[in-house]
Amino acid sequence: MSTQAVAVTPRAARVRPDWMRGWRRRETLVAWLFILPSLIGFTVFYLVPAIRGLYISFTDWDLLSTPTFVGADNYRNLLQDGDFRHSLWVTLYYVLLNIPLQTMLGLIIAVVFDRFVHGSGWRSLLLLPWLMPNVIVALLFLWLLDPGLGIFNVFLDAIGLPKQSFFGSVGQAMPTIAGVNIWRFVGYTALLILAGMQRIPKDVYEAGAIDGASETRMFFNITLPLLKPVLTFVLVTSVVGSFQIFDTIAVTTKGGPVDATRVINWFIYQQAFERFKFGYATAASLILFVILVIVSLVQMRLLNANESDLA
C-alpha cells in the first residue's frame, strides 16, 4: 500500500525515471490503451495521409492509373503557372480585405461588451453567425445581395444609387465574400478578445478612471497592451483560417467571375477533382502549407517582439 502511494505522486516518479518497474509498466500499458484509438485515428487520417500527400506531390497521377514519379516537376511547374500565382494573389487580397476589418470590428464590439454590456445573454448573440454553416450563410447573402431583387439593391435603388452586382462583378466579388465572412466571424473574434479583456483586473481601470483617463486613452494604454497574447492567438488562427477560404466561394462564385475569386483552395480543388491532376493539386496544397507556416511564424515573431518593450 505504501509503495503504491509513493508511486502515484508524480514528483516521485520524475526523480526516478526508470519506468521499467512493475507499477510503471502497468501505467504505461494503460496509457497506451487510452491513447490507442486516437493514435490509430491520427496515424490513418493524419500522419499517413501527410506522408502519402508528400509522395503524391512528386508524381503525375489521375487517381486511376499508376502514378508516374516526376521528381520536383509539379513544384517547378506550379511556380511558373500564372493561374497558380494569380490564385496566391487573390487569396492574399482576400486575407487583407478580411482580417484587418474583422479584427478591428471585433475589438470595438469586445470593448463595448466589456465596459458597458453586462449579462451573458447578449454575449451569446455574438456566436450565432459563427454557428451557422458556411453554406447557409452564403445562401442567405446570395439572396440579400441578389443583383435584381436582393434587398440591398432594392434599398440602393430606393435612395437613388445604382444597383450593384456584388457576387457577379469582377471588382466586387472578393470584397463581397470578405464582407460575408466578416459577418460570420466578427462575433466569434469579439468573443475571444472579450475573454482576454475580462482577465484584465478591474482595478486597473478604476485607477485609470480616478486619474481622469478617458475610455479611449484607457483602451490604448491599458487594454491593448495587456491583450497582446489573446490578440496574437486570434490573429494567427484567423489568418490561417482566412487563407483557407473555400465553402463560401464554392456556393457563390465558384472562382468567378472570370478568375476573380479563384483562391488557392479553389485552384487546388479544381486541379484535383475537376482535372484529376492529383500530383499537381497536392503539390499546390503543400506550398500553401509552407506559406501558412511562414506567415504564422512571422506573425508570432512580430507580435512577440513588441511584447518585451511593454513589459
Binding site: Y46, P49, A50, Q244, N265, A272, T282, L288, F289
Partner: peptide, 22 residues
C-alpha cells in the same frame, strides 16, 4: 506531433484522405 498537426491546412489531408476512402 498531435499539436503540430493543427497547423496543417485541411486541404493537404483532404486529397490523400479522399484517395484512401476511394
Amino acid at each position: 506531433i498531435f499539436l503540430a498537426s493543427l497547423m496543417v491546412p485541411g486541404i493537404v489531408l483532404v486529397i490523400p484522405n479522399f484517395v484512401l476512402i476511394h
